[in-house]
Design a protein around this nucleic acid. Structure first.
Length: 722
DNA sequence: AGCACGCCGACT
DNA sequence: GTCGGCGTGCTC
């Protein structure tokens, strides 16, 4: 009986595929193989050798080619990926595919990692000795005499050397080689650490070489980054690697500069905007151990770390760590899995830790470290509530708020008005007959975008032209209701004609580096008013910003989403943290119709930690994550009936399992590009019940007759991994 | 996910 | 007459 190979292929099916071994070349676990698949070919990863196949040998096809001599994915990554696919109930093939950069999922040799350089051949050496060449060629031969020289250096030494290089290369006198890139020299020195920072560094450093999770809880500007850098410095000094995850690319450039300047080691940056070739090279340099520090977003959690020393997840509460399509993993939790497999400490940092992490601290699974002191000794700004009930509002802005903005710009400082709604107005209403613009696909109210003269459904992206009159009664009396960032921008520009008003949301920052440029212009010491969505909440330094006005958080107080209160609290604290970061004191206003709401009261009076503790208690009492356990079964298809049929089938199939459907089944909703999505919320009282029930059920789902017509996935809410 | 097959509408 | 729309089924 031939030894069969089990291969993971990048397909969203809960199946692995069996193949007969290649005619030549032995494949190990973790090696890539090229296999026939369907009518074409595919690159897969060997997950098992010598397996007993359930498929008849007559039907088994043969591996076409073994692409790697040894494993490309090491044993740790293979094991962690298998665990992750199992934990998040993902298609195993997709999990392995996620780990490999796209450029490495092709039938091509691995890219050369070395820097381009040129060297003399034996023939070249004799030609140099004989002095047989003249001019540029001779100069190039002489330049290469001491040893290989990089192309970069040749550009400086001999401008126009390429012509000579081409001639000498053709004559066989020189050859292209590569040299390892040289590490840059550190250009900045570490600052003196504050006592709390010092203590955090020492505590974590004492765990180097073993697995331990830490929650580094520090307010904005308390110097978390310095703690990371000090730790990474120690790790690198031991010859080990550090992985630093950040929620988004926007934050990476300033961090990467800081890390490079400080450490003077090879730092690789990985994010989704990177060209595939660059991404593959960075990944491979991490695999070779050449890269000492790997800094990246969500997907960088799959980087191989043969000499791992430390993993850091910055802003661990950030939702960007959750992958929303394909293999639905959570990078923060995957980082924990990897740290455990690699036997290294993992540090989760945040000013507003997720309730999951706080629960893990309470359970004794994470050690909490606190940073309170703000270096530079500027006190965190106090948040003041502006009661907007019975106030005369100017486009949704209260007199108190406008007065504060006026004061700020009069002092030559900058103000930020934060509103979590894009567009001009969330509703367009006919004042004559009560008609309002509704999306024909989802029956959601459509948002008015005045600049584009369009109505856009923020739910499914359906767009329509802005009607000049009411489509129902033909009255020319259409009134925008409510305020989006676009309308606030207009209102503020009208109120403060002499001050530049900048709007920052998805619409104005579409263009690459438009965001960077906008922020750059704000570094100048001039008055300005910013209007923006949560893009502005993330850790950008705005030294001249002294007033933050938060408008319209009221929706978040009454949302049905059980995470809404948590996110609202984090948002308020993070946005407030933008005020008064440098030498000037900051002021924060929160405008609301519910000044007595208990969450707001507690958040403002006692701070995030107290509010989070209350929210956590509430979740515990009603068994919501991180205490109860939930899975969302999502189905998507072009036809609404297909989504319905699948969900009904799934609900029937579920009837025998030790799980409950939570609540009635909502009707499938239209989605962008004319697709419909429906979902089923499944709950269990314990995690083990959920998982033991779901694993076999997951395979069964794919066998349902209706499963073929929809794209479905299970969204496992990150709970705990113990 | 890709990809092929297959069955009905509007064009050279 | 065929090009091509997407609905359906399959991949060791």
């Amino acid at each position: 009986m031939p030894a069969v190979l089990r291969v993971a292929l990048p397909v969203p099916l809960p199946t692995l595929f069996d193949y007969l071994p290649a005619a030549s070349g032995r494949a190990d676990v973790g090696s890539r193989v090229l296999v026939p698949f369907g009518k074409g070919k595919a690159v897969g990863v060997v997950v098992e050798t010598n397996v007993e196949s359930a498929v008849g040998h007559a039907r088994l096809k043969r591996v076409l080619k073994v692409l790697d001599d040894g494993p490309l994915l090491d044993a740790e990554l293979m094991a962690t990926l298998a665990r992750a696919a199992d934990y998040w109930l993902g298609a195993p093939g997709e999990a392995y595919a996620n780990a490999l950069p796209l450029a490495l999922r092709e039938d091509r040799p691995l890219p050369d990692l070395r820097e381009e350089a040129w060297a003399l051949t034996a023939a070249g050496q004799s030609a140099l000795d004989a002095g047989s060449r003249r001019g540029g060629s001779r100069a190039l031969l002489e330049a290469l005499a001491p040893g290989p020289v990089t192309a970069e250096l040749l550009h400086e030494l001999l401008p126009g050397w390429r012509d000579a290089a081409r001639r000498l290369d053709e004559a066989g006198l020189i050859e292209r080689t590569g040299v390892a890139g040289a590490a840059p020299l550190p250009t900045s020195t570490p600052p003196e650490l504050m006592p709390e920072q010092r203590q955090a560094v020492d505590t974590i450093a004492a765990s180097l070489g073993q697995f331990q999770s830490f929650l580094l809880d520090g307010v904005t500007g308390s110097g978390k980054t310095e703690v990371y850098l000090a730790l990474i410095e120690q790790v690198v000094a031991q010859g080990k690697q550090a992985l630093l995850l950040v929620p988004e690319i926007g934050l990476a450039p300033q961090t990467v500069r800081r890390v490079r300047d400080r450490l003077g080691v090879a730092v690789e940056v990985l994010h989704s905007n990177l060209a595939e070739g660059d991404r593959a090279r960075a990944w491979l340099r991490a695999r070779s151990g050449e890269a000492k520090v790997i800094l990246g977003t969500r997907s960088a959690v799959f980087t191989p770390l043969p000499h791992a020393g430390l993993i850091v997840v910055d802003e661990e509460h950030d939702g960007a760590y959750k992958q929303q399509e394909g293999f639905r993993y959570h990078a923060r939790d995957l980082a924990l899995l990897r740290a455990r497999a690699l036997d290294v400490p993992v540090v989760l940092g945040s000013a507003t830790p997720s309730l999951e992490s706080l629960a893990n601290v309470q359970a004794g699974r994470y050690r909490a470290l606190h940073l309170r002191a703000r270096p530079g000794a500027i006190r965190a700004p106090q948040v003041q509530i502006v009661d907007m009930r019975a106030q005369r509002l100017e486009h949704g802005l209260s007199p108190a708020l406008l007065a504060a903005v006026a004061d700020t710009v009069a002092r030559g400082e900058q103000a930020l008005v934060f509103r979590n709604r894009r567009g001009y107005a969330p509703v367009l209403l006919c004042h004559a007959c009560g008609w309002h613009a509704e999306c024909p696909r989802c029956e959601h109210p459509m948002t008015l975008h005045a600049g584009r003269r369009q109505l856009i459904c923020h739910h499914c992206d359906y767009t329509a032209r802005l009607p000049a009159q009411c489509p129902a009664c033909a009255a020319p009396d259409l009134k925008p209701q409510g305020q989006g960032t676009e309308r606030l921008e207009e209102a503020l520009a009208a109120q403060f004609p002499e001050v530049p008003v900048l709007r920052i949301d998805r619409e104005t920052t579409r263009r690459r580096d438009a965001f960077e440029q906008l922020l750059e212009s704000l570094h100048e010491d001039r008055p300005a008013i910013l209007v923006g969505t949560q893009m502005l909440a993330k850790g950008h330094d705005l030294p001249n910003l002294t007033l933050v006005a938060i408008v319209g958080v009221d929706e978040g107080l009454h949302s049905v989403d059980f995470r809404a209160s948590e996110r609202l609290s984090q948002l308020v604290v993070q946005v407030a943290g933008r005020a008064g970061r440098a030498r000037k004191p900051g002021r924060v206003l929160l405008q609301t119709h519910h000044p007595d709401h208990p969450l707001l009261r507690q958040l403002l009076a006692q701070g995030y930690a107290a509010a989070a503790a209350t929210l956590l208690d509430e979740r515990r009492s009603v068994q919501l994550p991180p205490y109860g356990h939930q899975v969302l079964l999502r189905a998507e298809a072009h036809q609404r009936e297909h989504v319905d049929a699948f969900l009904v089938d799934a609900a029937h199939a579920l009837a025998g399992a030790p799980l409950q459907l939570a609540g009635p089944m909502p009707a499938p909703m239209p989605l962008r590009a004319g697709r419909h999505r429906g979902q089923l919320l499944i709950e269990a009282e314990t995690r083990s019940a959920l998982h033991t029930a779901l694993r076999p059920w997951y395979r069964m789902l794919s066998t349902l007759p209706s499963a073929r017509r929809v794209r479905w996935s299970l969204d496992v809410d990150p709970v705990d991994l113990y």
